[in-house]
Simulated scan of single mutants.
Amino acid sequence: MEVSYRHAALFLRHAVLASRTVQHTRCLCSSRSISTVKLACDTYGKRTNNTSPLVILHGLFGSKQNWHTIGRNLSRKIDRQIIAIDIRNHGESEHSDVMDYPSMAADVAATMKEEGVERGILIGHSMGGKVAMTLALQEAGLVEKLIIVDTTPTTSAGKQVFPKIIEGMNNVKFHTEWTLSKTRSEADKTLLKTIPDLGVRQFILTNLVEDDNGWFSWRVNINAIQANLEQIWSFPQFKHVSYHGDTLFLGGSKSPYISESHYPEIKRLFPKALVTHIPDCGHWVHSEKPKEFMEAVTDFIRK
């Protein structure tokens, strides 16, 4: 697919002139110490000495598992190691009552260091994109390039959807005598009352797990997510700081998450940013258009 970059002239007008890379971070949470939690990750492909790995960060209610096919195929396509990470309170990673972006970014930085990654290409979808942007603004030396999928460094569009998702998940009742398929079917019926979109329900149901004793549960920390929703759909206030590495904002043409109104803030924080939209695609760009998504990512990394 040929990817066309839109509104280049508008971007140039909003470009922020700067001559130095980021040295300090000032954000809403900079006055407190940050405690990290251990994150789970999956790797695809082998790491070579002359290429940085690509680190994938999923969105809200997602997991590294959602990126299995993309991670495996992308590793072969770009001949780099892929590291897919579960963000705190998701997947197999540890839970925490704290869920702000500086903390989540610090988790990723610690995980990269544990994995021996001195510098990586970060790709983040939705909430994961905000984690990636925060990390680039906090520790630019860890980030070679930045790929942000259908989100911006602003308050997210469609935030009214998240409380409905949480309401539906909290309404689901689990019974030990049910099979996994029966539990999924009944959970889907309950979720339908607050989540009419089948695709979203199927995505949420990927969080349904069964333990060794036959107990069913949601693997995400719903209580922490609900308590931190305001922070999750907003973005930290960074002042007098920007990330000067190559950055791609990749949106879906049918999604409202990246629009022209966001361009001034994008360019203030990421002066070298390019924006493109994949046609006929919504918020879950990588799952709706995986071929076009991988082509756009590959082109950007190789350039």
Rank of each mutant, 00 (worst) to 15 (best):
S261T: 14
F203A: 10
A40N: 12
C41L: 06
V16D: 01
N171C: 12
H95S: 11
H7M: 14
N207I: 14
K303V: 08
K159P: 07
I278Q: 01
K113G: 10
L135C: 12
D150N: 00
L269N: 00
V200H: 08
I278M: 05
L208G: 11
R47T: 10
M112T: 09
I166N: 02
M127G: 08
Y5E: 00
Q160G: 10
K289A: 11
E144R: 03
M133P: 05
V108G: 01
Q237R: 13
T155E: 13
L60P: 00
L17Q: 13
S31C: 04
H175F: 13
D97F: 11
L229A: 09
H58E: 10
P290K: 03
Q226E: 08
T206K: 12
E115C: 14
H68L: 11
Y5G: 02
A40T: 15
Q23L: 14
S242P: 04
K182A: 14
Q65T: 15
M294F: 06
Y101S: 12
V149W: 00
S4G: 09
K164E: 07
K182T: 14
G62S: 01
G168T: 11
N66K: 04
P163A: 07
F270T: 12
A157M: 09
D188C: 08
R76Y: 13
Y101L: 01
W178M: 10
Q202Y: 05
Q138R: 13
I195A: 10
M133E: 00
P153C: 02
T176A: 14
V172H: 00
T151A: 09
A110C: 08
T43I: 13
D150I: 04
T25W: 10
P163H: 06
L39G: 03
P53S: 02
F300Q: 01
E144Y: 05
M127H: 01
R20Q: 12
K267Y: 09
A109G: 07
H240R: 14
V241A: 11
A105C: 10
E118L: 11
P264H: 12
A110R: 06
K272W: 02
F174R: 08
A296E: 05
W218E: 04
R76T: 07
V55T: 03
G71I: 00
F216L: 05
G62A: 06
G120D: 10
I56P: 08
Q202T: 01
Q226Y: 04
I70V: 15
W178N: 14
I258E: 04
